[in-house]
Simulated assay, not measured.
Amino acid sequence: MKFTTLILLCMATMGPPAHASEHWPQRPITFVVPYPPGGTSDIVARIVANRLSETIKQSVVVENRPGANGNIGANIVAKSKPDGYTFLLCDVSALAVSPTVYKSLTFNPETDLTSVAMLSFSPFLLVTNPALHVSTLRALVEKSKGTNADFNFAATSIGSISHLTGLEIKQKTGAIWQDVFYKGGSEAISDTIAGHTQLLIAGIPVLAPHIQSGKLTALGVTSASRIELMPNVPSLEESGIKGLEVGAWQGIFGPRQTPNEVVSKLNSEINNILQLPDVQNKFKELGADTKPMSVEQVNTLFRDEAKRWSSVIKNANLKF
């Protein structure tokens, strides 16, 4: 066999060249959402997936893989082939704090995942049962310190961002309450409405109907300023807690070693989608703002969130 023929045969068996990612995507893409259908992450994923499929001319499938506060779905993506066709769409803060909360985690978010894009930020609401007869954060803090006070805070799970936000509020205000843990947000909300627990922190979409019906009282929103969806609810910042901007940061990550060309292109496509007025309006209906970022900005936010919540956990001497 001639040498040149041998070379050509070897090249043919080597598969596609490294620059094949330049032609991405050539088949459907999957967004793994590590939570049940119907939540903020799921809704955001479907809004973005629909518009992205139009711009890249390929289907974008949303696959819900809930469990372990998002870690089951995250692990699936971390262990998937880094070919640019499987991505994680999740709450960035929850992902960042996972190594501190879950000691037996089978993946490392910082080293096994690649930041791709940021989508949105939606703050939480601090609410109480109306029977508590408080309408401001200051009144809540003062009443919690009373001799006959017996406040229970409904947390969705130990180490969840809503739980850690409650801890940070206690650390910054001196408020006193006991944490009661639930397997899911709906049960926590139901028990607070029933008066079994007195207060909780959760997302705007799930709490808004109960506030409007008078079953819950909103004391504050965990953003730097008031939000358009609820202009009469003060921010906790203006209520006296400085530096408290907390909520669901929805971001996209890929497996480690996802081609840089794919990451760059998807980041650009996502950021363009976030500029569309109809997308921004749909996000606002969720109490969320679009947050286009560069890949490096996503990396910085991830590191900052991990550092922030690790400090809250340490100060609370929280054990898992």
Rank of each mutant, 00 (worst) to 15 (best):
F3N: 13
L8T: 09
L9Y: 10
C10G: 14
M11Q: 09
M11A: 15
T13I: 07
G15A: 09
S21W: 10
H23M: 10
W24V: 10
P36D: 07
T40Y: 01
V48A: 11
N50I: 00
R51A: 11
K57L: 08
K57R: 15
K57S: 10
Q58A: 14
S59F: 09
V60I: 06
V62M: 06
V62T: 14
N69W: 11
G70C: 02
I72P: 04
I72G: 15
A74R: 03
V77A: 07
S80R: 00
P82K: 07
G84R: 00
S93N: 14
A94Y: 00
L95Q: 13
T106S: 04
P109G: 07
E110D: 11
V116N: 11
L119Y: 03
S120Y: 09
P123Y: 10
F124G: 03
P130G: 14
P130Q: 06
A131D: 10
L132Q: 08
H133Y: 00
V134A: 10
T136W: 08
L137M: 02
E142D: 12
E142F: 08
E142G: 06
S144K: 02
K145A: 13
F151D: 03
N152V: 09
I158R: 10
S160C: 08
T165Y: 03
G166W: 08
K170F: 08
K172L: 10
T173L: 02
Q178M: 07
F181Q: 09
F181R: 13
Y182G: 14
K183D: 13
I189Y: 05
I189E: 12
S190F: 07
D191R: 15
G195M: 06
H196C: 06
P209N: 14
A218H: 11
G220F: 02
V221K: 04
T222H: 14
R226H: 08
M230F: 10
E238G: 00
E238N: 05
I241H: 04
G247E: 00
W249M: 06
Q250V: 01
G251A: 15
G254K: 02
P255E: 05
N267T: 08
E269G: 04
L276E: 14
P277I: 03
Q280Y: 13
Q280T: 05
L286R: 01
P292D: 03
P292N: 09
M293C: 15
K307M: 13
R308H: 13
R308Y: 09
N315M: 02
